[in-house]
Each structure stands twice: as structure tokens, then as C-alpha cells.
Nucleic acid binder design. Structure first.
Length: 444
RNA sequence: GUGGCUAUAGCUCAGUCGGUUAGAGCGUCUGAUUGUGGAUCAGAAGGUCGAGGGUUCAAGUCCGUCUAGCCACCCCA
């Protein structure tokens, strides 16, 4: 073989997922998918590449610099790798009006690409896991989104998390109440958004630096940091801002949302209002959600909310939409942190390794492997002529729980010996009972 | 885009004030054990010290350049 001249390495910010990792990732994906299906969300898949023009003008100037372009020699179309899953959804909704019945509930778990500088937990290729309801304007839809979040996290094994709920309209109303609008209001959001990281004092200092009046800051901080349980928080705000139509509308929506959540039976310990939660920028128009896993020492694992003006972009109209995205990469990290994978999820799917004693017994070993596979046992046949010890070591290293030993003695007597590596237990059985014995070793 | 840190064996890292032949743990391979993995013991392989310059009698070690990686900021998942 020629010596490889090229150092094997990955593009910046991209990863390989080796089999042991893939088993874990697919476990998480499958649990989340189960919950989506339970709520009537159905899968959508769109191409990795979109026309460049489809993506332009949707994310803002700064974000557009992070879009990967994908040209080939002589290509006539300007193509780009998708930047998220929401714009493709908007395109699909506009493109297939006859095939899509509203409300349209779809989910998509797919990679997206951003040419950012990689960092801890941030990659240039990463999976997004979105579920959205297109064409439903009521708070029952938003409540359903929150329910999906809670159900999925519970199913994965998390039990100490909080879905933080706020309303974009309420933040706007607070700005009005304090006398801040336009560009300063956007900066105000950005500062408040850092609440988790820098605390109340940090936010206060940043607002001072941004040149806001001390009195204004005091009014805002008083409102957003009020520490009252659930609904009482809303009543407190109403006392100050009851005269502002935007505030009334926002508070009404949140009351409505909670009523639907209660009806759906979601335990109240898993959600709460957090008036300091802002959700990045721009396109949200109503309730917003963000979930933190407590004691995780990490940012949010889920974000979402209502965005009524984005999905209709390609149709030139407003289509009420609410949805959410799991920070699925972070969730996968936390699954390890909190040890939430089931023990049955070992490093391999393979359940049995059939060892091969010698060249003469290989045909018989193949027959045995075939019999085990016929009984739905995931079976690897050892494919090299090596010493028995090395074959067993191979099973041990991969985490295969059972090995079959088929030497001349066993073949002569029509039997096969199985060994369970976990505890070294050996069982000899007739070939007719072989599969049954393996299932016994696997399940006890 | 801005700033900081790092680069030595497959992996994680040590290497003193610049001084002879470059070190450990883990992993890999061989054997102890020709029908049995892990544990133990004995041994072996494995290095352009990121690249290319400079200072010096002498550079893994000091200086600047480049490259790559990591971290923080901006922003985001």
C-alpha cells in the first residue's frame, strides 16, 4: 500500500460520529421523535442545499456572512448550505399550498451549517431539532409546543428543568412604560438577555453604560425582577401597566397560555414566567420559551416562541406560527453528564460473536451465525483466522455481551458453548436450543 | 471580526537556569497461557519536539513569522 501523503483531518468545526457516539445520538433523536409523533407532528425533509436567493435577506447582514456557499465548476445556480430549518419550512409552506393542510405540524432533525468560529459546544456543522405549528394563532398551539418540550425532556430522563415563559409584546410594553423605543429598545433587550450570565447588578451597570436614565432603569429592573409565583407575577405587572394596550394583550395571552397548559395536565413544576428572558433578536411576535436544565451549568437546551411574520415571507402574507427548537447537541452532552442513557445502550448493537476455532470449523461457525440471526440475535462472525483469545478480546473490547465457542468437541456432539463476558458464565447447549440460551444470557 | 493561551509518542501530559543518547501513564504489539477476554508479570515497537527562520559554542527550552487547535468577547444552537 502506498504511504498516505495527506494528513487525515476534518474541516474546521466539523466532527465525525463514531459508532459508539452514533448509538447515543440516535437514542436521543428517537426519544424526541416519539414525542413529536405522539403530538401529531410529522417529518419533513428538505435539501441540504438551497438556492442562494432563498436564504438571502432572511437572517440579517451579519448572519449572512456566515452562510456557506456551495458552487461546482460550471454550475449555473447559486447554491448555499442551509443555515437553519425555519427558512426552508417557510419556502415549503409557500411552495405546496395544495399538499399542505393548515395547521401544518412538522418536525425536522437535520444538520445545518454556519461558518462561525468554532468554540466549546459550537460547531460549523450541527443538528437542529425543530417542531413548529404553522397556521394556528391561538394560545392552545403555544401551550402544545410547551407540552412537547416538557414531555420530551421527561422521556429522556431529565426531571429538574424549567421552561421559562415570557412574551415579546410584554417586553415591548415594558419599554414603552419606561419610555424606551426603537434602537435603544433593541439594546435594552440585549442587555436584559444577559441576566443569567451577569445578574441584576450586571444588567443595571450595562444599562447605565448604554446611557439610559437612572430612573428609567429602576422602573424596568423593578418590573422584570419581581419575585412572585406564577400568575401573581402577571397581576403585579398589570397593576403598573394596565393602561398600556400592548401590556394587556401580552398578559392576556400568557394567562390564556397557562390555562391551556393546566388543561393539558403538564406539571407546574416544569414551567414558570421569567420576565428577564428575551430570546435573541428580531422575529418573535408573541410568547417566547426557553428551557434550562437546572444544575447543568450550561445555557438553554431549548428555545422557541411565536413568530407570525416569518413563515409567510415567501407568500407575502402573515401566517401565524409557533414552534421550538431543541439544542439537541447540548442535550446530548447533558445525557452523559447526568448518566441518562439506559444501560442496555452499550458500545455496540451486536449481541453475540461467533468465534472460529480453525479453518476447518469455519463453515460450521457460519451455519451457527446464520441460525442465531434467524432467531433475531444480532450476530457477528469473526472474520479472520486468529487465536481464540484474540477473538474473545475483540468481543470484550467492543462490548459484545456473549461469545459462541464452537470447537471440534462441540461440533462432534452437535452442541455449542456460550460464554457471557460480563461474569464469565458458560453454558453448553444443543444447537436446537442455542438461540434460546443466548436470549437467556442476554436477559438475565 | 477582536483579544488571550497552547502545540513534545496513537492519546493525556512531564521535560528544572539553554548543556551529553527525549521521559511517564494509558493504549498498541509479543510472551508467560497451542480451547477462553478483563487482572498480574516480563518484554517490544512507536518521536522531523507543529512549520520554516533567527540568536548562541550549544535550542524541545530564548526571539519574531506562519499554520493549526483551544478559550473568551461579538453573536448564536
Amino acid at each position: 500500500m502506498p504511504k498516505p501523503k495527506i494528513e487525515p483531518r476534518l474541516p474546521k468545526g466539523m466532527r465525525d460520529y463514531l459508532p459508539g457516539t452514533m448509538l447515543k445520538r440516535e437514542y436521543v433523536f428517537s426519544k424526541v421523535r416519539e414525542v413529536f409523533h405522539l403530538y401529531g407532528f410529522e417529518p419533513l425533509q428538505t435539501p441540504v442545499l438551497e438556492l442562494h436567493e432563498t436564504l438571502m435577506g432572511k437572517y440579517g447582514e451579519d448572519a449572512e456572512k456566515l452562510i456557506f456557499n456551495a458552487q461546482h465548476p460550471g454550475g449555473k445556480e447559486e447554491l448555499s448550505l442551509r443555515y437553519d430549518l425555519t427558512v426552508p419550512l417557510a419556502r415549503v409552506v409557500a411552495q405546496y399550498p395544495n399538499d399542505i393542510a393548515l395547521p401544518f405540524k412538522r418536525y425536522q432533525i437535520s444538520p445545518v451549517w454556519r461558518a462561525e468560529r468554532p468554540q466549546k459546544g459550537r460547531y460549523r456543522e450541527f443538528y437542529q431539532c425543530d417542531a413548529d405549528i404553522v397556521g394556528a394563532s391561538g394560545m392552545d398551539a403555544d401551550a402544545e409546543i410547551v407540552s412537547v418540550v416538557i414531555s420530551a425532556l421527561l422521556r429522556l430522563g431529565f426531571d429538574n428543568f424549567t421552561v421559562k415563559i415570557n412574551n415579546r409584546k410584554l417586553l415591548t410594553a415594558i419599554g414603552q412604560y419606561a419610555g424606551v423605543e426603537g434602537e435603544p429598545l433593541a439594546n435594552l433587550y440585549r442587555s436584559i438577555d444577559k441576566f443569567d450570565k451577569v445578574g441584576a447588578e450586571g444588567v443595571r451597570e450595562e444599562l447605565i453604560t448604554r446611557g439610559l436614565d437612572g430612573e428609567v432603569i429602576a422602573k424596568i429592573m423593578d418590573l422584570i425582577t419581581v419575585d412572585l409565583p406564577g400568575i401573581q407575577k402577571l397581576a403585579y405587572l398589570e397593576g403598573f401597566m394596565g393602561d398600556f394596550p400592548a401590556a394587556c394583550e401580552a398578559l392576556g395571552e400568557l394567562r390564556d397560555l397557562i390555562a391551556h397548559l393546566q388543561a393539558s395536565g403538564m406539571p407546574e413544576q416544569y414551567y414558570d414566567f421569567d420576565l428577564t428572558m428575551v430570546r435573541g433578536l428580531s422575529y418573535y411576535t408573541g410568547p417566547i420559551f426557553e428551557t434550562v436544565v437546572n444544575e447543568a451549568g450550561m445555557g438553554s437546551v431549548q428555545g422557541g416562541g411565536r413568530y407570525n411574520d416569518l413563515i409567510g415571507l415567501f407568500k407575502g402574507e402573515s401566517i401565524p406560527t409557533t414552534g421550538m427548537a431543541f439544542g439537541i447537541e447540548r442535550i446530548i452532552d447533558l445525557m452523559d453528564t447526568f448518566n441518562l442513557y439506559p444501560p442496555s445502550l452499550g458500545g455496540t448493537l451486536t449481541q453475540a460473536l461467533v468465534t472460529v476455532f480453525s479453518g476447518e470449523t469455519r463453515f460450521e461457525a457460519e451455519r451457527l451465525a446464520s441460525e442465531l440471526r434467524g432467531a433475531e440475535i444480532r450476530t457477528e462472525l469473526y472474520l479472520q483466522d486468529r487465536k481464540l483469545g484474540q477473538q474473545i478480546a475483540h468481543a470484550d473490547k467492543k462490548g459484545i455481551p456473549v461469545v459462541a465457542l464452537l470447537g471440534p468437541d462441540e461440533i462432534a456432539s452437535g452442541q455449542v458453548k456460550f460464554k457471557r463476558l460480563r461474569d464469565g458464565q458458560e453454558v453448553t447447549a444443543s444447537r436446537a436450543q442455542a438461540a434460546e440460551v443466548v436470549w437467556g444470557l442476554l436477559n438475565t
